[in-house]
Every structure is written in C-alpha cells, then in structure tokens.
Amino acid sequence: MVEAAKKHYTEYAIEEFLVRDEPYYRPVGDEIELFTAAYRQHIPVLLKGPTGCGKTRFVEYMAWQLGRPMATVKEQNEGKEGEVRVPLVTIACHEDLTASDLVGRYLLDANGTRWIDGPMTRAVKAGAILYLDEVVEARKDTTVLIHPLTDHRRVLPVEKTGTIIEADDRFLLCVSYNPGYQSALKDLKHSTRQRFISIEFYYPPADIETEIIERESGCTKEQADALAKLGEKIRNLEDHGLQEGASTRLLIYAGRLMAEGIQPRRAAQVAIVWTLTDDPELQRSIQEVSSSIFE
C-alpha cells in the first residue's frame, strides 16, 4: 500500500504544483494588509466564511505576495523526504485526520525504521504558510496539536522522535472555518479559536463580484453582471430554506459555461440551481429568479 502510494506520487513531482504566476485575487477590504501585518507579527490567522468565497485563493495570493513560491501538498503526501521545501502547505482536514498524519510517522525500511516528516512538520521546518482548510472537520486531538505552534512558543513537539522543532521565522499557521455548518457536535473549541485573529469573508459586493466573474470565467460583462445579480438574489434566500447561498465559485462556473456558448438560463440551471438544492420548490423558485434575470 505504502509502496503503491509512493509510486503514485513519484509520478507527480511536487515542483509541478508550483505556481509562480500571480494568482488572481481581488481584495474586498483590508484583508491583505491585515494578513501581512499578522504574518509579520507571527499571529496565526483564522479565515471565516462560506464556501467558495475566496478563502483558499486569498491564501494562495498571500503566499505569492509574501514572496515565496507556492505548492499544494495533499496531507497524505509523505513521498520523497525533504526533496522540496514547501512554502505553502494546504491540508484539507477531514474527520479521520490523525495527529501522526500531520506530524509524521516511522515507516518500515529494509534496515529497520525510518522517520518521515508529516506535512505540518515540513511546513514548520521550511518556514511555510501552513493552511488547514476546514479545520472544524479535523478531529479534536489534532486541533490540540497546533496549540504550541500558535502561541509565543512557536514550537512543534514531536512526541515520537522526542524532539521539539522550533518554527522557522517565516512560518505561519492559517486555518479556515465555515461557520455556516450548524451541528451540536461540531464546533471549534474556544481554547483553539482564541489563538487566532479572525478575518471574516463573505461573498464580495455585486460590482466586485461582477469583476471577478468576468475575469475568472471569460464571459461577457453583461453575463457577469447578471450572474452577480443572481448570486445576490439567491443569497437573499439563506435562512429561508437555503442552507448556503450561491458561492462566487459557482457563479464563475456558470460564467465559464456561458463563455463556452451554453445558453445562460441553462448554464445557470446546471451550475447553480441544481447544485444548490434538491428541494423542488426551492429549485423552482431559484429557477424563476434566474429566468427573470436571463433572457
């Protein structure tokens, strides 16, 4: 199993994930200044906001802006030790993510055991921005793991090896969190929360969103404008049956379909209406809004 995984990953050299061009990010408020300041001051950052509003893109952009090449590493990527220094490590958290998945583990070798650093350890060593996406999804014990990294200590104790790694000066922890989910069994612990500054994200205002959609999807200005309007109207339905409004990402998808020549109404239907909900009445309502906006 391990070997297969290894083989799989060796085919993708990590360098190939590097994006050296500037990612497109359209600031809405002072988030860039805030993040830069926090980065300089070594304050961990919590990004709050609904899905698809640009959190991940923002981190990518910041990683680029703060002058480092960027790569994304899936959390199971334990291949090739130390081969590449990973300046932006994105980990998509899920509920089976264990502490050793993050920190690292011993593997069997022909000669015995060999320690391999987990993505978190690597990020700490390399002085990267460590981005834990959807951190609530992670197990409680893994969230505790980040505590010593987030206060003044900035260390990562590695129990198994009996070492403590002091973080590189450039290291920063950044987590994202979607407060829209409402489950009694799921929330960020206060002891964890209070270690971050929080930057709240919401879908951008209509004019900016238009700009983003147009730029990202390549559809016409009119279409982008209409899509932004549709997004705005659909978001009005949050709390009226819709769990989350249409994300900017979805609007962009619809825009892309339009740019490919799909009829606007149809594009909105497949990219937005049907994606958002399975409730027939809600679907019909959104459909009606869409058919009012698009010819």
Binding site: E232, L237, V289
Partner: peptide
C-alpha cells in the same frame, strides 16, 4: 404561493 414567496424574498432580500 411557496414558489412565489421564495421568489419575492430572493428579489427583495427581505422575509
């Protein structure tokens, strides 16, 4: 009614 209600809410942004 249900559809129109949601439609109007979406357009107006008020409940």
């Amino acid at each position: 009614k249900g559809i129109l209600r949601l439609y109007c809410r979406a357009l107006s942004g008020t409940p």
